[in-house]
Amino acid sequence: SVYTYTYTIDVTTLPVVPANASSTVECLSDATQPTAPVVTDVCGNDITPVITENADPICEGDKIYTFTYTDCAGNEVIYTYTYTIDVTSLPVVPANASSTVECLADVTQPTAPVVTDVCGNDITPVITENVDP
């Protein structure tokens, strides 16, 4: 005679991820993909996450990295890391300049100085002029 004992493996315990995290930076270049947290399934096996990210904000906004962990039973948990891009530093512009000319015909639009934001991005100036005297 044969005696059979069967184990049914039914993984219902979700993997545990740390609390979502965030930080604030001034430049998108500082919003680098963080290291993925180590997450294990209920049996202690490491789970490799699928990492996705949202589109880069144009200037300010959130850069979000999403880490999706799925165990062998299809149980899925998500960890997110959010960078808030918040530019607080003003660009540095050179001191105002001037020159003296004798004739209005000698007045030409000067070349705008190169100005960058705190992250090194060029800022395009809006140039205005007063009405001719």
Rank of each mutant, 00 (worst) to 15 (best):
C43H: 08
P125Y: 10
T108N: 13
F67K: 03
S22P: 03
T116S: 06
P15M: 06
E53M: 13
V50D: 09
T35G: 04
P15Q: 04
T80R: 13
D132P: 07
T100K: 12
N96G: 13
S1R: 09
D86R: 12
D56T: 10
D117R: 07
T6F: 00
I127F: 04
T100S: 14
L14R: 07
Y69R: 07
V118E: 06
P18K: 11
S29M: 06
T8G: 06
T35Q: 14
C103R: 12
E102M: 07
T116H: 04
I64Y: 07
G44P: 01
Y83R: 05
N130A: 03
I51Q: 09
N20W: 00
D86P: 07
T66P: 06
V114W: 01
N20G: 01
E60H: 00
E76S: 15
S98M: 05
V39G: 02
T52D: 13
Y3N: 14
Y5W: 08
T12H: 07
N45W: 00
P113I: 03
A19S: 12
P37S: 07
T108D: 09
D71S: 02
L104P: 11
C27F: 03
T116K: 11
G61E: 09
V77C: 06
P15R: 02
K63I: 03
N75S: 10
S98E: 08
A31W: 05
D62Q: 15
N20E: 11
D46M: 04
V38E: 14
L104F: 13
